[in-house]
């Protein structure tokens, strides 16, 4: 079910078009990664989804309700952490979460349980009575995530939630986000592409205010390189085998290069037919002495680089 639908949003700041006809959707219960270089329009899109900005054109619907028109209906469905956490430095962690929960009109009896939950999952118990001013950057970031969660929204928007965190905390936050997936829909933006590939079900890549690609990592991988991206290593090179490779039905591209003693063939195939067994068999029969065959897959970083560079 489509929980958030962004339809053709355009936003200008002083005649500079920051977003240009941006459309994508986020399904309920999924973690949706939002990727793009600095200044691509990620935060502006997230601010529009959060209801902090209004688009010049287009609309955002949350469960079918136009968010820009009926914000009252959608307010409490959303929790967000955008850029720097919005913290009152003179408050203690507990007091701050209580204040934010009260602002969101969480009933007093439920609020205490919500705060306890946030403190537990974000490991804030050691600092809950400390003034926010005296917390480390990592803990401030955790408190920022806690405020987004304190009213138990169905949708969470997290812009760079792991900024400033140590590697252990990054793993903890990753696990937390994966746990949240059970009951929440998450829109996540981060430059840690490896982390994104571990948690995201779908990704949207944006650059210069335009959506370049949207879909699952698998779909993008296929779109970019075809289904099969094979690297075959042989000890010998024969003209017959080269001829065989060039005549392969469904071949998208073929590259070969000498690597030490071996010859490495880089074959991109449309994947409509299974060719790996035939490749090995023909390499043996045509006297190439195959020593290795591996299926290469683009990781998210390579996908991101190829898509953003390809559109420049």
């Amino acid at each position: 079910m489509r929980e958030i639908v962004v339809e053709g949003i355009t936003k200008k700041f002083s005649n500079r078009k920051v977003l240009d006809n941006v459309s994508f959707h986020v399904n309920r219960g999924e973690i949706h990664g939002f990727l793009g270089p600095n200044g691509a329009g990620k935060t502006t899109t997230m601010r529009i989804i959060a209801g902090l900005l209004r688009p010049d054109a287009g609309k955002v619907t949350i469960e079918g309700v136009d968010h820009s028109v009926k914000r009252d209906l959608t307010h409490n469905h959303l929790g967000f952490l955008l850029e720097d956490p919005p913290l009152y430095r003179d408050m203690s962690v507990y007091e701050y979460l209580y204040f934010v929960g009260s602002l969101k009109k969480v009933p007093a009896n439920k609020l205490k349980a919500n705060i306890d939950y946030c403190i537990e999952v974000l490991d804030l118990s050691a600092v809950m009575k400390r003034s926010i001013e005296n917390l480390s950057k990592g803990f401030k970031q955790r408190v920022g995530i806690a405020q987004a969660l304190v009213h138990m929204p169905r949708i969470l928007i997290l812009d760079e939630p792991t900024v400033g965190l140590d590697p252990q905390s990054v793993v903890e936050i990753r696990n937390l986000i994966l746990n949240l997936k059970k009951e929440h829909t998450v829109i996540l933006s981060s430059h840690l592409l490896h982390e994104m590939s571990l948690v995201c079900d779908q990704v949207t890549i944006i650059s210069d205010g335009k959506i370049l690609e949207t879909g699952s990592i698998e779909q993008l991988r296929y779109k970019l390189a075809g289904k099969l991206n094979i690297q075959l290593s042989t000890l010998k090179q024969t003209q017959d085998f080269d001829q065989y490779l060039k005549s392969l039905p469904g071949l998208i591209s073929l590259e070969k290069k000498k690597n030490d003693e071996a010859m490495v063939y880089h074959i991109v195939h449309d994947g409509q037919t299974e060719i790996r067994t035939a490749l090995l068999k023909n390499a043996l029969e045509l006297g190439c002495d195959p020593i290795g065959l591996e299926q290469k897959q683009y990781n998210l970083e390579e996908i991101f680089m190829r898509i953003t560079e390809g559109k420049k």
């Binding site: 959060a50 409490n76 967000f80 919005p86 969101k104």
Partner: peptide
């Protein structure tokens, strides 16, 4: 933004 995103 805490205020702007709250039902007030």
């Amino acid at each position: 933004e805490l205020y702007f995103s709250s039902p007030i």
